[in-house]
Design a protein around this nucleic acid. Structure first.
Length: 503
RNA sequence: GGGCCGUUAGCUCAGUUGGAAGAGCACCGGACUUUUAAUCCGGGUGUCCAGGGUUCGAGCCCCUGACGGCCUACCA
């Protein structure tokens, strides 16, 4: 049984043969246009009469006997073509072999139709590429989410909104580079393949280099290499690059994602906070013209970031009118904190939290606090907020606060209910850094948690040569794009999100 | 990993109590020289995700699986 798609393809193959039979190459090597469609539309509005040579994909066709209207689109815009048999002569027959989806070139005069649309009256026509498969339906476009991601090109062809997301994404990154370049930062590139996947707490992808006979890991962060550059005297560096974490996908996670990291010598986390506030404001104004944005049902002011300590944030988020929340300072060990969380789970929405917090017994204090953050704090931080001063056991690369050795000078930036950035005053004491790595390794063997920080001896050696006081930042660019485009799923802002291969 | 939902024509979607697989767009044929979701006339083109099962009979009910979405978990 031939399916309908075979039928459609056969029709188009027949047209292809007809075109070839006329001595026309349906896939010519080049076609030089004089303008883009956008340029022509602008020029016409300025000056009127205009001869031009355009190219684009046919997106609609309205045949009317001895005349036909078509819409074509190039990367810049859409324009209507008016094709008349009395002008095109024999070439008018070629229209019978054209389909929506084909690329054509057209020369002619631009005019305005009776109904007011700027239109190209075609004097000559060329086929540039024959399409053999039908595009999505013109009115609804492509809505099957799986198909949209697997065949993103079809999604892009049929949806201006989707195209816009990726224009905005590109503009965001351009603006980000301009921001850093303007502040004297040097853009650098560090290894993607690393012998130790360090600089974050995540499970890495591993691979193997045959000639070196060695296991290598795809980076989970750029942090430790960028710090080596600070040690080397490059006082301000940043890198925008892909990092890879061997973990699940969700509306906020993709196994590979794009991260910005920046390091600035002689700065601390307060300086980084100010910089993030300025950077996000700058990017929003450059890209959207305003820092006041709509995210879901919420209005967000990206130019102003609240500051709250983690201790306060957790206490506030876990409290309920009459009953005070959990003050983590009062629970200095995993045991007591676990007890407090168990009480909270019992009193408050037990059906949800009891299930969620099933693995509580095995967790370290840091992990428990992390749990509190992701369950209570993060989802409720819609307005831009810096959460400050994290427990040291959660932050092996950050410097302790001078007045409280259980806390580090670290902040996470939250917006739209997501963590978008993480920053700290970098730990530059090599002896303490070695000790912190050691603690992480201990925890790892104790808890069997392969997502803890790994020791990078080569980095420790570098640190022993001396690193100046430094403020560092990591920002999830995909999530920033989500905030600035109002998208609730990270897959909407990644061109080809990770999907399982079809069996 | 767990729960819920989805998968029907190229695309967007209907499909009643288990009783002959449908519509719009696209496509094919015809008409039409200012249309624009063009219009008018005619044409339905299918591995109902896959594999089992129940039944006289399954798109529909049951089981298993695949893929996807959402929630949840994991994820500084």
């Amino acid at each position: 049984m031939p399916s309908r798609i075979d039928d459609l393809a056969r029709n188009r193959l027949e047209k292809l043969s007809r075109i070839r039979a006329c001595g026309i190459d349906p896939y010519p090597p080049r076609y030089h246009r004089s303008h883009t469609i956008k340029e022509v539309l602008a020029l016409f509005e300025q000056g009127g009469d205009l001869l031009t040579r355009l190219a684009g994909r046919i997106t609609a066709s309205r045949p009317m006997g001895r005349a036909t209207f078509m819409d074509i689109r190039d990367g810049s815009g859409r324009i209507q073509l008016y094709l008349r048999k009395d002008i095109l002569g024999d070439k008018y027959q070629l229209l019978k072999s054209l389909d929506i989806g084909d690329f054509i070139g057209a020369t002619g005069r631009v005019f305005r139709t009776g109904s007011g649309e700027v239109t190209l009256e075609v004097a000559d026509l060329a086929i540039l590429s024959k399409s053999l498969r039908p595009l999505a339906e013109k009115w609804h476009g492509l809505t099957d989410v799986e198909k949209r991601y697997r065949q993103r090109y079809l999604d892009l062809v049929s949806s201006e909104e989707v195209r816009d997301i990726f224009f905005v994404r590109s503009h965001i990154i351009t603006a980000m580079r301009r921001f850093f370049d303007g502040r004297g930062f040097l853009e650098v590139e560090t290894p993607v393949l690393q012998p130790v996947a360090a600089g974050a707490m995540a499970r890495p992808f591993s691979t193997y280099h045959h000639t070196l006979d060695q296991t290598l890991y795809l980076r989970i962060a750029t942090e430790l290499y960028l710090k080596r550059l600070i040690i080397g005297g490059l006082d301000r560096v940043y890198e925008i690059g892909r990092v890879f974490r061997n973990e699940g996908t969700s509306t906020h996670h993709n196994p590979e994602f794009t991260m910005l990291e920046s390091y600035e010598a002689y700065a601390d986390y307060e300086d980084v906070m100010e910089m993030v506030e300025e950077m996000v404001t700058f990017i929003a104004e450059e890209v959207l013209g305003t820092a006041q944005i709509q995210f879901g049902v919420d209005k967000i002011d990206l130019s102003h970031w609240e500051r709250i300590t983690l201790r306060e944030a957790i206490e506030k988020a876990t409290g309920r009118g009459d009953r005070p929340g959990i003050d983590i300072e009062q629970y200095p060990d995993a045991e007591s904190l676990r007890g407090a969380m168990a009480r909270l789970a019992a009193e408050d929405a037990p059906e949800r939290l009891v299930a969620d917090w099933s693995g509580l017994e095995k967790m370290s204090r840091g992990k428990l606090i992390d749990k509190l953050i992701s369950s209570f704090v993060e989802p409720n931080l819609i307005q831009p907020t810096f959460v400050l001063d994290y427990p040291v056991e959660l932050s092996p690369l950050a410097k302790r606060k001078p007045d409280n050795e259980r806390l580090v000078e670290r902040f996470e930036a939250f917006c739209g209910g997501m963590e978008v950035a993480n920053a700290f005053t970098e730990l530059n004491d090599p002896i303490e850094q070695r000790e912190r790595f050691r603690e992480q390794e201990q925890l790892r063997s104790l808890l069997g948690d392969d997502e803890l920080e790994r020791t990078d001896d080569d980095f420790l050696q570098a640190l022993e040569y001396g690193m100046p006081p430094t403020g560092g930042l990591g920002m999830g660019i995909d999530r920033l794009v989500m905030v600035l485009t109002g998208k609730q799923s990270i897959r909407e802002v990644i061109l080809f999100p990770q999907l399982k291969a079809k069996g």
